[in-house]
């Protein structure tokens, strides 16, 4: 099967990506989204992103992990590699009592199998609703390889629950 694709030959673009300790990380430089993917992204924005603030329209090249760990150069698609990067690049998970700061990472983890679904970058801590409320992390995310970049409140990501994933939010930092 897929003979017509096989005949075209391989065409997978990747670059050199390594962790700080030299472990090679598989990556793929993604093509730009087509008209249909751009339309799907628009529909998803309308459905879920009422309170999001777009930073960049639908774009290819990279996914969430690529945004965070390769400066938007390429996409990293294996969550096991994301764990390797966290370990070898010296990240630590913040305990509950420690406040995250801008530049820290926000991980959305599927509690069903402890696999990371998404990683975003914490931009700022915005004031809560009431004066005495906790501040709310404001996150920059590129949700997948064809989406745009959006800024959103950390909990304003209802789609995973609607898909049956039970998500836990973790904060990780490169700070000592």
């Amino acid at each position: 099967m897929f003979e017509e694709i096989k005949l075209l030959g391989p065409a997978e673009r990747s670059i050199v990506v390594q962790t700080r300790t030299g472990t090679a990380i598989k990556n793929v430089v993604e093509p730009e989204p087509g008209l249909q993917q751009q339309r799907h992204y628009q529909l998803l924005l309308e459905k879920y992103g009422q309170r999001w603030q777009p930073r960049k329209p639908a774009t290819g090249g990279y996914n969430c992990a690529g945004h965070v760990w390769t400066s938007r150069r390429t996409g990293l698609f294996d969550p096991k590699d994301w764990r390797i990067i966290l370990k070898e690049d010296g990240y630590r998970q913040l305990p509950q009592q420690e406040r995250p700061l801008p530049g820290d990472l926000v991980l959305y983890v599927d509690q069903g199998n402890e696999e990371i679904l998404h990683v975003g970058e914490l931009l700022e801590l915005r004031p809560g609703v009431a004066p005495q409320s906790e501040s709310i992390p404001w996150v920059l995310s590129k949700f997948n390889a064809t989406s745009g970049e959006v800024m959103h409140y950390v909990g304003d990501v209802s789609f995973w629950e609607s898909q049956g994933f039970l998500v836990r939010i973790e904060y990780w930092t490169d700070r000592p």
């Binding site: 529909l43 390889a145 789609f159």
Partner: peptide, 12 residues
């Protein structure tokens, strides 16, 4: 397509 949403990894 909309139901698939923003899933980014093959395993998810």
């Amino acid at each position: 397509a909309v139901s698939v949403g923003f899933l980014s990894t093959a395993s998810a």
